[in-house]
Write a protein that binds this DNA or RNA. Structure first.
Lengths: 151, 151
DNA sequence: CTCCTATTGTTCGATATCGCACTATATATG
DNA sequence: CATATATAGTGCGATATCGAACAATAGGAG
């Protein structure tokens, strides 16, 4: 017997994901210094994980936001001294984003500040269930990303 | 053998959820009329599923947004004629939100417009995996909601 | 009833998001 | 080379989000 690909199932999954996203964002932003919000942290985290020197346009694509939003987010990080923007020596149109020590420290201390709360949550919520859903979420994320209108 | 509740696991799950949220929101908003965005649709959907006459403060809590954001969202829906706000006869401080026919129609037609795309995605992505993760997401959502600082 | 406190909703100001239009640079075409 | 097209980033305006402060109402204590 085959399943009938009920579109409502996906709809409901998106519904739950939307609420979880908001709750987890609040958790993160409670740890960030005044004036910084989740997108700022995401950029710092991305630069640590993928390496310094990324181009703003590529980060905008990675986060699925318009490049004007990335310009704005980077301006906030630069004003706070968390990153510096330098011209790209290989392409006069673009720039490169480099972390400062202050940026690196903020990312690390934010994760450290978050760890106790996340540990507590992970202790009380069954880790097996998280381990079960994580690969599916990753697969779904990649799938949806690829399914976007390639306009 | 017990698991060691790695906080990074939850962190990574939140990461994936954040990206999926953005992609699915784009999917939805592509179907909404000019000037309406996801929160507007969420309100219409909530009123259909939970019934007319809800109080704005309760909807703000259900969506985990500040009440000022709910005021703004409802103002937009009211201006478009999708809902009407009436004083609550049982409490002079609060209001009640009622759907109009136009609001009901918009909710239904948006879901109808979304169905083909969701069907296609559900056909190409294994429904079993969605069915597997949905109860866990629901449980996680309820858990996080309850774990919020009851400040 | 009077006072005190809690709750609902709004206004206001600061910041965020994002589409559109523009500049500067790069690249392809001839 | 000259021109045309594409790409990276920014300025601007419209709308969204959200915290602080406020007004109106509710409800309990005395």
């Amino acid at each position: 017997m085959t399943h009938d690909s009920d579109p409502m199932l996906l709809f409901e999954v998106f519904n739950e994901i939307g609420i979880i996203e908001q709750l987890s964002r609040d958790l993160l932003e409670a740890q960030l210094p005044e004036g910084l919000i989740a997108p700022h942290f995401s950029v710092l985290n991305h630069l640590i994980r993928r390496g310094d020197g990324a181009l703003p346009i590529n980060m905008a694509r990675a986060f699925q936001v318009p490049k004007t939003s990335m310009t704005h987010t980077l301006k906030g990080l630069e004003k706070g001294g968390y990153v510096v923007l330098k011209p790209n020596p290989e392409d006069g149109r673009s720039k490169q984003v480099w972390l400062t020590d202050k940026g690196r420290m903020l990312r690390d201390s934010t994760i450290a500040a978050l760890a106790p709360e996340l540990s507590r949550l992970t202790r009380e919520f069954e880790s097996e269930k998280l381990m079960d859903i994580k690969p599916v979420l990753t697969e779904l994320r990649i799938f949806l990303d690829a399914a976007r209108d390639p306009k």
